[in-house]
Design a protein around this nucleic acid. Structure first.
Lengths: 225, 225
DNA sequence: ATTTTGAGAACGAACGTTCGCTCTTTAAAA
DNA sequence: TTTTAAAGAGCGAACGTTCGTTCTCAAAAT
């Protein structure tokens, strides 16, 4: 999918490359990025409630007065961070289906996602967001939105695979999806990779689990008994 | 099969009580129970950080001065609640191994646990505890302790099953355990049962997953003994 | 008489947020 | 080009509130 970037129709078309966006707006965006980065760091370290605005200001090397020109409240900051993280996860997972075989595409995208999640130390933030979503309406809505989008994606993927005869026609997709998602969320929550378990073993188990509930008809690449 | 599960009380207990048992000690215990109940309610509702001591006092119908005679700080209250919850989960799961067959015993205990977890609305608290454990040393230690105990239990269970020839001799137990635990934690986190998925379907998928990684041979009716 | 329990006002600290001010940038006016 | 007014960005002390906790004192229990 491609969401077109802003295009303003002007009277004259400048030949030379000129900054379409004002230098002012650029600086503003840079500051927002800076604040979000600082907030991310602090939230990972101390949690949404535990991190104070002063902490975030210190991390961003910025005074409260300055920060509040960009975000009207701590809530807004929390929501922005939560949304960014959830969307990032969704984007990572959206690559499922790209692979030599059905299961491979799925497993590869999942493994890549978990490795990225672990490498960037996102485990604590994920847990924090889910805890916050239990009682913060906006964060809950954000989680539900990305989750719903993921379910739709997953559903379309599995339906297509079923229609193509790649998976067991009687597989209960509507039960499989939440279970696979639970597995994924559990892996993010407990940071399985961070526990020192060999990624190859994880992949092997993940594959066995996936195949057991999907039972693809396409012959597995190797492992002939 | 029986794996002795023993629990030694942690160091995050309320103000030390006298070893002797009397009317006084009983009343004291009743008050502690009352406070823990109120704290549980408030923590589920607003989270550890979100719930204030005044909230808990109101819920327990007790003044701050009274409450502080039983718990020296909010931290102690959080830790007590976290420990209680974790130990309860551990106890629930310790029933694995009680069943007609290996997989049945496992699945039954897991399903019973999730149903109980859902029915008592413990999902938010579980998430909260895990989030807190990311940065609270004491809660982290508590989680690690019960988790370690569970791993030991699980490991003994699987090792015995493997030695008895009930599961694939090449099954990678040390990778299977964290993966199965991730699945379980994910199910608690996302409250699969609460999503309206048919428990029978959940059980079916859980069974398929378990069998796929354990590959049990046909379970013998009973062991000669 | 002594100890335990309880109530609830009060405390200091920390929080999210605001305010008043200065400095910088922008751009129109001169 | 220079001047000047307006707007934006930034600072950090300070505000009002809320928080966890303590203090004082009285009632109850032993």
């Amino acid at each position: 999918m491609d969401f077109g970037s802003e295009h303003t129709s002007g009277h004259t078309q400048p030949v030379a490359a000129q900054p379409e966006k004002g230098v002012r707006a650029e600086k503003r965006e840079a500051q927002i990025t800076r604040i979000l980065g600082a907030a991310h760091t602090c939230f990972v370290q101390s949690g949404f409630r535990g991190a104070s605005m002063h902490d975030i200001c210190r991390e961003a090397e910025m005074s409260p007065g300055a920060l509040y020109r960009y975000f009207p409240s701590k809530e807004a900051l929390i929501e922005a961070i939560a949304e960014r993280d959830r969307i990032n996860d969704l984007r990572n997972m959206a690559r499922m289906g790209e692979g030599p075989t059905l299961i491979d595409g799925f497993i590869n995208s999942v493994m890549a996602h978990f490795k990225d999640h672990h490498a960037r130390g996102m485990g604590p933030l994920f847990t924090e967001i889910r805890a916050e979503s239990m009682r913060n309406e906006t964060v809950a809505a954000c989680c539900q939105k990305t989750e719903g989008e993921f379910i739709r994606l997953f559903h379309a993927f599995l339906s297509q695979a079923k229609a193509d005869g790649h998976i067991d026609p009687v597989a209960e997709i509507d039960a499989i999806i939440p279970m696979m998602m639970a597995l994924g969320e559990g892996m993010m929550l407990s940071d399985v990779i961070g526990k020192g378990v060999d990624p190859a073993s994880i992949e092997k188990i993940l594959r066995a689990m996936s195949e057991s509930i999907l039972r693809p008809k396409i012959a597995p690449p190797a492992k002939a008994g």
